Simulated assay, not measured.
Amino acid sequence: MSRNLARTIARSFYANSQPEGAGATVRRCIGGHNTIDPFLMCDIFEVSPPAGFPDHPHRGFETVTYMLEGTSAHEDFAGNKGLIKPGGIQWMTAGRGIVHAEMPVTKSKGIQLWINLSAKDKMIEPSFQNLNDEEIKRVNPEEGIEVKVIAGSSFGVKSDVFTRTPTMMLDFKLSKGKKIEQEIPKDYRGFIYVWKGSGYFGGNRFKGQENYALFLDESNGDYLPVEAVDNDVRFMLFAGQPLKEPIVSYGPFVMNTEEEIFQTMSDYNKYTNGFEKAKKWRSSIGDGVAGIDFEKEFKN
């Protein structure tokens, strides 16, 4: 397939560690006022019991938890509960409202990505897509190159994950000396996070190194070239179709207007309009995971 223009890297920064939640540390790639439509936040987290993310609400977007190391338990007020094991994902659509807890069973490291929902989808019913490591598709275009296709597609292999907001989430491993050209839709915006090693990214051969976030330019380029020159490199690519809608957020709530945020806060405080089950619900893991039989209680 002929390609017209390579994407370049417009900017980068080192993602420093910072405290988050109840005893976790995160490296924040995007968040707050620094967002890339349709992405709202991306944290590389490390957390060990008894720390974690106890009972908390969401509305108006999706959260993706991708475990790299360790195991995490999740539980919500609708009765869903399970384990996210190494290499597995949970793709949660908060929609009109969910209250849940995310607590590590062991020392854990992974990614949490927040993806915005369009106005027409913000008040849909909550839902989950859970995949273990072995259920996520992979492609090896040649020896020394592996792509884990979490969302979107790569080299003709398409993920089974349904994305309401069109999204690519790909985990790449390139051995030293290997090159790739990953196709990206021209209207997608996105960024890269370098897990390990270093490589040359984009048409401008920008050198990306471990723990750096690299941001794609906003040209109409349709592919991203990457080369592992000095050593092996592992990196994540996040790209998505911009919604081009107003964003008004307040903590764990993301809507389109201030009025919708005020309504969300009222709904949550009064246990109405999607938050009814929160009134009497408390997770079994929010105070820690000691003494819980996870093999019995938290099977996926």
Results as ranks from 00 to 15, higher is better:
Ala6Met: 14
Thr8Cys: 09
Ala15Gly: 06
Ala15Val: 02
Gln18Val: 07
Ala22Tyr: 04
Ala24Thr: 07
Arg27Asp: 02
Arg27His: 12
Arg28His: 07
Gly31Asp: 10
Asn34Lys: 14
Asp37Ala: 10
Met41Ala: 13
Phe45Tyr: 14
Ser48Val: 10
Pro49Gly: 11
Ala51Phe: 13
Ala51Asp: 06
Gly52Asn: 03
Pro54Ala: 06
His58Asp: 06
His58Gly: 02
Arg59Val: 08
Glu62Phe: 03
Gly70Thr: 08
Glu75Ile: 03
Ala78Gln: 13
Gly79Ala: 02
Gly79Asp: 11
Gly79Ser: 10
Gly82Asn: 03
Gln90Arg: 01
Trp91Leu: 00
Gly95Gln: 05
Ile98Met: 11
Ile98Pro: 02
Val99Asp: 00
Ala101Gly: 10
Glu102Leu: 04
Met103Trp: 05
Pro104Asp: 13
Val105Asp: 04
Ser108Ala: 15
Asn116Val: 09
Ala119Tyr: 06
Asp121Tyr: 05
Met123Thr: 05
Met123His: 02
Met123Cys: 05
Pro126Lys: 00
Pro126Cys: 11
Ser127Ile: 00
Gln129Met: 08
Asn130Glu: 13
Asp133Arg: 14
Arg138Gly: 04
Arg138Leu: 08
Glu143Leu: 03
Val149Tyr: 08
Ser154Gln: 01
Lys158Thr: 13
Asp160Val: 07
Thr163Ala: 14
Arg164Glu: 00
Arg164Tyr: 10
Arg164Pro: 05
Thr167Lys: 11
Met168Cys: 06
Asp171Glu: 08
Phe172Asn: 02
Ser175Tyr: 01
Lys176Trp: 04
Ile180Cys: 06
Gln182Cys: 13
Ile184Thr: 09
Tyr188Arg: 07
Ile192Tyr: 13
Ile192Trp: 03
Tyr200Gln: 09
Phe201Asp: 05
Phe201Met: 10
Gly202Cys: 04
Arg205Leu: 15
Gln209Lys: 15
Glu210Thr: 14
Phe215Pro: 00
Leu216Cys: 08
Asp217Ala: 11
Glu218Thr: 14
Ser219Trp: 11
Asp222Cys: 01
Val226Glu: 00
Val226Ser: 03
Val233Gln: 10
Val233Ala: 02
Phe235Gly: 03
Met236Leu: 15
Ala239Asn: 06
Pro242Asp: 10
Leu243Asn: 14
Leu243Phe: 09
Leu243Val: 10
Val248Gly: 06
Val248Ile: 07
Tyr250Glu: 07
Phe253Val: 06
Val254Gly: 00
Met255Tyr: 07
Met255Glu: 01
Asn256Arg: 01
Glu260Gln: 15
Ile261Tyr: 01
Thr264Gly: 09
Tyr268Ser: 06
Asn269Val: 02
Asn269Leu: 14
Thr272Ile: 06
Gly274Asp: 11
Trp281Leu: 07
Ser283Ile: 09
Asp293Tyr: 08
Phe294Glu: 00
Phe298Ser: 12
